[in-house]
């Protein structure tokens, strides 16, 4: 719980520092994108810190690429290596 709070605070801190630095140079679109991506990162980290089970995106990546890998294995005639 404490870890999640710290992660959240560091997210706020990062936002504050970044916006201060940029001053007026930043436009609306950039602001939204920044907050959006930062939100994903901070949110996921907080969920992990609390202990909420999150599906691992790597499993999907593996499922996506596995057929191609099998093709390669078959082509090279290697078994499992």
């Amino acid at each position: 719980m404490i870890a999640a709070i710290f992660i959240f605070l560091s997210g706020v801190l990062v936002t504050w520092i970044e916006f201060r630095r940029a001053g007026r140079q930043i436009n609306r679109k950039e602001q939204i994108l920044f907050l959006f991506i930062l939100g994903i990162g901070i949110g996921l980290s907080m969920l992990k810190a609390i202990g909420v089970p999150i599906p691992n995106p790597m499993d999907f990546a593996i499922a996506f690429y596995h057929p191609f890998y099998d093709l390669l294995i078959e082509f090279f005639g290697q078994k499992g290596s």
């Binding site: 994903i40 990162g41 980290s45 992990k48 995106p57």
Partner: peptide
């Protein structure tokens, strides 16, 4: 502007992937 948010995502993925 994308550096910090993407960096945080990298750290997150490196820990959970």
């Amino acid at each position: 502007f994308l550096v910090v948010p993407l960096g945080i995502l990298i750290i997150y993925f490196s820990l959970t992937n």
